[in-house]
């Protein structure tokens, strides 16, 4: 397991270099001059333009810019936002808990429904439940996020009035941020009704963001289970006289989860992409919305730093997934 871990950690270095290169190059090819943008409509005299160019380091050769950028990253310096003048890392850390909370709820929602639905669909292959569940999953997967979000808002907020339309908590409640997770902070505040309000604000964004992962996880679980259920060792488990719940829930599921866990890991990337739309629809103050706003402001350092931080986050999640994969799959662990 240690060798597996070391090998896996070693892979992070080239991935990190790749990410920084892509983030750096991507931002450089975006149309629009960030220095000119600072000037606004009034424009800027060439002298001041040159001064700012030097100040931001845009006058130096491209490889020098890259190296100093990476050097900064290694020291925790992700740059300073051109528009807010705040360090990118600070902004990211302020907004990240909102996205993390939403993403966590969304993935929990997807796993809690997707895995049991996939198992049941596989065990009752060809049944009405199987066809209905997979039909719904396909619909969920095909539904554009913004459209799905609007539909839910119209039904549950507009017509039924069950859930709030936007934000993280009702303005009636105010308490200091301790963990950044609104649900936990609401509980810690001890204010009655605060937790309920935080949860009710999470319901729709969670469903919207979790729908695609839910569909993917359900379908992956079903196909993995179908494959595993036909394996000889499942027959052996049944030949031991074990109850069907143990045969399916332990012997089959343990093997079927191996590809499902990989899928869940890959869905984290999808979640971040989905968060951009979901946060915009529900005015959720997270990093998705922050990135969209920064791109439209041509805030190079934020886009660049945000990309690296998000990619790093996905990388860490994938590392955790791979370690889990190793733990659950002894053939990987002992190789």
């Amino acid at each position: 397991m240690l060798r597996f871990l070391i090998r896996r950690l070693g892979l992070i270095i080239p991935t990190f270099i790749g990410i920084t290169l892509v983030a750096f190059a991507f931002v450089r090819v975006l149309p629009g001059d960030p220095v000119l943008l600072l000037a606004g409509e009034r424009g800027m005299d060439p002298e001041r333009y040159q001064k700012l160019l030097v100040q931001f380091g845009y006058d130096r050769p491209i490889y020098e810019q890259y190296l100093s950028y990476v050097w900064g990253l290694l020291h925790g310096d992700f740059g300073v936002s051109i528009s807010t003048k705040r360090p990118v890392l600070d902004e990211f850390l302020t907004l990240f808990p909102a996205t993390a909370e939403l993403g966590l709820f969304a993935i929990l929602f997807a796993v809690a429904i997707g895995i049991p639905a996939g198992i049941l669909a596989a065990v009752r292959r060809g049944s009405l439940f199987d066809q209905a569940a997979m039909g719904v999953a396909l619909t969920g997967y095909s539904m554009p996020i913004f459209w799905w979000g609007l539909l839910l808002i119209i039904l549950f907020s507009g017509i039924l009035g069950w859930t709030p339309v936007s934000g993280r908590i009702s303005f009636l409640y105010f308490f200091p941020s301790v963990t950044g997770f609104m649900t936990i902070d609401a509980l810690l505040s001890g204010q009655s009704g605060a937790f309920g309000s935080a949860v009710s604000h999470l319901v729709l964004p969670t469903i919207v963001l979790g729908t695609i992962p839910l569909a993917v996880i359900a379908r992956q679980t079903r196909s993995a289970m179908l494959e595993v259920l036909a394996e000889d060792y499942v027959r052996t488990a049944r030949a031991k006289g074990l109850a069907p719940s143990r045969v399916i829930g332990l012997h089959a599921l343990r093997n079927a989860l191996i590809p499902v866990i990989t899928t869940i890991g890959l869905q984290v990337g999808v979640l971040i992409a989905g968060a951009i739309l979901t946060e915009t629809i529900f005015s959720w103050p997270g990093i998705g919305k922050w990135m969209v706003d920064s791109i439209s402001r041509r805030d190079y350092p934020v886009v660049q730093g945000g990309l690296v931080l998000i990619a790093g986050l996905v990388m860490v999640v994938n590392l955790v997934v791979d370690i889990l994969y190793g733990l659950i799959n002894p053939r990987i662990r002992h190789r």
Binding site: D232, R235, T236, R254, I328, P330, R331
Partner: peptide, 15 residues
């Protein structure tokens, strides 16, 4: 009780 033809495939790889 019963034993089968493919012993490696008949044992659960995860346990």
């Amino acid at each position: 009780s019963m034993i089968f033809q493919e012993p490696i495939a008949s044992l659960n790889p995860c346990f």
